[in-house]
């Protein structure tokens, strides 16, 4: 479904020195998989996640999403791909503080270029009900708990019915009980909705949810 082929990410520090954030790596994530990307901080797993999430471009190598080479797409096409294909969940939740819960969930649908086959508002209300956020639709993010904020972030990731959810340390800012609930929610989405899940983590407990692990160490994928 998404394939990173001999991808390198490097930054030129000066004329002679080049810093390799990610050395040549190849990774493939298949449909309906639940993958953990594990590695200590500074290992290059964030860089890998940004590349998989199409937020960053590789210095060399190719990213292929459903048979399409990303290097051949323009910025607008890549934006649309992020919009429709991937749902992001971040460690710091990354909700927009001035928007209500409902508006945050709906936000990706405002950027949709394709015509949606469903009413996003109805869908959002359905998701809010299903994941226990009823009554919070009009609340602002700073008025709800961390666990609730992360659930809102997951619903925002779901509104466009993506093929894949990419979660970067989704439990990093939560206590273990709430973190467990969030992981159960992701597991449910993978099993019931057949959504591909890729989580980036440094915690072995969290990584266990994945059916396959990709290990990143010293700026390279080590399997």
């Amino acid at each position: 479904m998404i394939k990173l082929d001999k991808v390198v990410k490097s930054y030129k520090i000066d004329e002679e020195t080049t810093f390799y954030a990610l050395k040549e790596s190849s990774v493939e994530i298949n449909e309906r998989e639940f993958v953990s990307i594990i590695g200590p901080s500074g290992s290059g797993k964030s860089t890998l996640m940004h590349l998989i999430g199409l937020l960053d471009k590789p210095t060399s190598g190719e990213i292929i999403v459903q048979g399409r080479k990303i290097s051949q797409l323009n910025d607008d096409q890549v934006s649309s791909l992020r919009n429709e294909f991937i749902g992001f969940v971040f460690q710091q939740f990354n909700l927009i503080p001035k928007l209500t819960v409902l508006e945050n969930i709906l936000l990706p649908s405002f950027y949709a270029r394709k015509k949606l086959e469903y009413d996003p508002r109805e869908k959002a209300m359905g998701l809010i009900k299903r994941f226990g956020l009823e009554g919070k639709e009009k609340s602002y993010p700073n008025k709800i708990s961390g666990g609730q904020q992360q659930r809102v972030a997951i619903l925002r990731a779901l509104i466009m019915e993506p093929k894949m959810i990419l979660a970067d340390e989704p439990t990093g800012n939560l206590d273990s009980k709430t973190g467990g609930e969030i992981m159960e929610m992701l597991k449910e989405l993978n099993e019931d909705e057949k959504i591909t899940i890729a989580i980036v983590t440094h915690e072995a407990d969290i990584a266990k949810y994945g059916k396959r692990a990709i290990h990143v160490k010293d700026g390279a994928v080590v399997k």
Partner: peptide, 16 residues
């Protein structure tokens, strides 16, 4: 800046 980053991540185009 952070808000722009979030919006871009969830699919906002440059023109948006």
């Amino acid at each position: 800046t952070k808000e722009v980053g979030i919006r871009r991540a969830i699919g906002a185009r440059k023109n948006d």
